[in-house]
Design a binder for these strands. Sequence first.
DNA 1: CGAAAATTTGACATGACTCAACTGGAGTGG
DNA 2: CCACTCCAGTTGAGTCATGTCAAATTTTCG
Lengths: 192, 192
Amino acid sequence: MSVKKIIDNLQKNIVLSKAEQDLLTEKFVFKKIRKKQFMLHEGMLAKDVAFVVKGCLRSYSIDQNGFEHILQFAPADWWITDMYSFISQKESTLNIDAILDTEAYLLSRKNLLALFDEIPKLERHFRILTENSLVGSQKRLIETLSLPAKERYRNFCNTYPTIAHIIPQKSIASYIGVTPEFLSKLRGNTGK
Amino acid sequence: MSVKKIIDNLQKNIVLSKAEQDLLTEKFVFKKIRKKQFMLHEGMLAKDVAFVVKGCLRSYSIDQNGFEHILQFAPADWWITDMYSFISQKESTLNIDAILDTEAYLLSRKNLLALFDEIPKLERHFRILTENSLVGSQKRLIETLSLPAKERYRNFCNTYPTIAHIIPQKSIASYIGVTPEFLSKLRGNTGK
DNA sequence: CGAAAATTTGACATGACTCAACTGGAGTGG
DNA sequence: CCACTCCAGTTGAGTCATGTCAAATTTTCG
């Protein structure tokens, strides 16, 4: 059963008894999300946080000129949501959709809060998730300010080795902040 | 007394009784930080969060080539710390120092946690602070990926109107991610 | 198979950087 | 109070990174 993957992931940060594991797993809802299907639309509330077991989701915003900018990819074993909307229950500024056919487990804010009462140490895991979001975002900001596109591409490949050669290149271009044409040229000369 | 400014700031998010206000204010420590003095060095633990009442602090990291990249300014009425280190009590990756002679109130992690027990609704304020850090960082990331330097400069001026014409231009350049020379040229033609 | 989307390629334009020279304060020591 | 130094800021010439647009090619998928 792929539920086990959620437990394994959680146990990277906290230890869970069998009873706690059972409590947890019944709160998650399995969902298939086909390529191009949305999990969250800008302006809605982020009701759920998702744990991906297969495929890949992405979160992104759309600027004034209609260009997409990808904030995060979530391949297997990653968590994703609009952290801001999910925590504060205000309107989301992000979209989340699937760039590959995807399977994920969804946990609603309501169920998560209920779980926090039953398994307080769970808070630790989700606090760490928020911290990682913050650190990741700051790290990328510095990177974007200081590194040329070629190295940002290398960093992307290191951060997301499992999907680097599966997802469309224009998604990668959007993530590292260059045009698809330019990324194509980058890859052209550096071998690969 | 400038302690009042802390209370006013907190009351933007939560309501505090007189008794709670007194509890709070005795936990803050007033401190003068002269221009160029450090409040936090990379590699240390972020023991305190600071509320600035006068002057300006900045947080920044230093890249492999020795260049500084400013993550945040904190003029009067702003909070600042290395959120990651402060929350997780792991080594900081940021430096925080003063770019103007500054006056601030410091609150230690230990005292903050004690206050959370006595005034639970305080958690709300600090949760919102973390959220704002995350949202701010993501917003800037998108901005950096999508806007040309001239508009990033305009956004800086809107975000930090009180210090835009007081702090050195090279600090602004470091914040928006361009060389000081280029920022100077930008300002040259767009007439101020 | 055929249409639509993704990728590649090339010519050209422009934003942003580097380096070097110059200008104009803001300290500092005499 | 002056002379000196030291930064911060400005300016210009030349270069490099990246963007734009358009055309050609490949891949995807109904």
